[in-house]
Design a binder for these strands. Sequence first.
DNA 1: TTGAAAGCGATACCAT
DNA 2: ATGGTATCGCTTTCAA
Lengths: 329, 329
Amino acid sequence: MAVTIRDVARDAGVSASTVCRALSSPELVKAETRERVRRSASALGYSPNKAARGLITGRTGNLGLIVPDLANPFFPGVVKGIQARARELDYAVFVADTDEVPTAEAELVQALAKQVDGIVLCSPRMSESALRPLAEQTPTVLLNRRVSRIPSVTFDNLDGMRQAVAHLTALGHRRVAYVGGPRSSWSNRERLRGLRTAAAANRLELVEVGNVLPQFTGGIAAADLVLAADVTAVVAYNDLIALGLLSRFRARDVDVPGHISVIGIDDIAMSAMVHPPLTTVSSPVEQSGRAGVDLLLDLMENPDRTATARRELDTHLTVRGSTGPLHRP
Amino acid sequence: MAVTIRDVARDAGVSASTVCRALSSPELVKAETRERVRRSASALGYSPNKAARGLITGRTGNLGLIVPDLANPFFPGVVKGIQARARELDYAVFVADTDEVPTAEAELVQALAKQVDGIVLCSPRMSESALRPLAEQTPTVLLNRRVSRIPSVTFDNLDGMRQAVAHLTALGHRRVAYVGGPRSSWSNRERLRGLRTAAAANRLELVEVGNVLPQFTGGIAAADLVLAADVTAVVAYNDLIALGLLSRFRARDVDVPGHISVIGIDDIAMSAMVHPPLTTVSSPVEQSGRAGVDLLLDLMENPDRTATARRELDTHLTVRGSTGPLHRP
DNA sequence: TTGAAAGCGATACCAT
DNA sequence: ATGGTATCGCTTTCAA
């Protein structure tokens, strides 16, 4: 079948060891021999078997990536960032989708652990106590989650919320709702914390209307609760929820932003495509993926020094038509 | 580090061979021994190293998947379907995104070929002559593309277009535009062919307004051409383009569906979320992914007999608010 | 029913 | 500078 190192060795009239060296440590081989080997290799179309190499070197050249739900456009962005960086570094990427089932996370990590050099865990929902042993077993980087002694890439949710509240305050809003996402989401907790802090600092009333699925339907479901809460603005855990709110508001003939202002988080592409376009807290999603890969490689080379490495990326408010000044009497 | 088969063997007081058999060919091992081995294995948290196994069996237990652009919500759907099926069958999946760069396809196939048992090529843009040698080298299944002697899963684009035209005809439309996607897209060619056939059969005028990127911005760009074409309805290569059309129409104060009807293809989630919601030709996307995996496994077991296996999945028109009867004078 | 040993493909160490 | 050999973890004859 496939051409092996021994085929090349025979063809070039040298030993397998020499072929190996000629290809991976050229400086150790006489120029003439090296050339002969290289010619044979490319003539036969040889390329080394990564699995076999990994067996002995302990490096597979593969990375693992686990995300909660590819149907949420936020995550494909992360995947693209990771892919792009991984390809630059000549790594291949296993991708697994847990379908928002927290127990699937650990299973998938276990399944991938032996065939990858490291794993990027994106927005994991599992508990810290479940997470830490996994991270000790395989080099792991967390995205959108912070856990002590595990490297992570996060967005500055606190500052994002501060910007959102500042914007609403400037527009005259005094009473604002928050539609929460999954309770097990670290981002959700951070966003809530950021909102509380910012609200207090601005003497704004914050109404928490509960937790919903981080999806369009979650927003649909929350919309009526928001209206009943008698607020003039609402911040949603993510853009999908915010889009659900917008949709339901329209169905109920509630004017946005005339009657109520809406702010989402993530800045998924769709947010700019709807009408009115959604004001949202933008995060550099692809960049977070790239940063995750870089952190992972650091970690692999240097298990201890970088164990607590952290990148926190800036967010910024993108103001669009779904927020506006308060007109109500 | 990781627990190996020998650790389990020692713990259970048997040889490595027996552990291997107990786990993969249980019927060859005495029940009692088998149980003991299994207990040791799970106590130690053993799971076999796929790479090492692959070295000897020639099977890696991995699949490769190559898609043009994860940012187009159609593709994450495919990925989810493939993942789900692959996980059921205990396969892990490499995912690679070409960013719509056709030359990246072959490179990625080459890079993955040696570490997977088979590859699913989703909507490949490369030429047939480039495709065929790749498919001969590694078991390959095509999604959304048909090439002789390579197994494939496709949607019944022709019938989908027939349904779309029937719908528009029933509403009274006589002159319809088509906004094309990438010229190198097989689906685009099929859709165009289907439209031409159906238009002729219904004595409908079909205006082809050129090819655009299969993205929201493509639709924005095409909208003005469509308006200038003096049609009462437009079919777009995909939903993203259709959403771009809707957006631009709204910006130009063109009423949909009062002044013009719009039909997309794919039925991505967003299509139901906008206003007016988009009429579209729905395809069973996740199912196509699952079918792709099944075809691939057939092919692996049976390289010759199934070389030309084909699945064509039914599509159906989902009518929503973006199409309506003709009111114009 | 079980164990010993060979070997998959590549690499790394030890000789020469 | 090059070759021989052991080894990675697992599966698979072949014997017992």
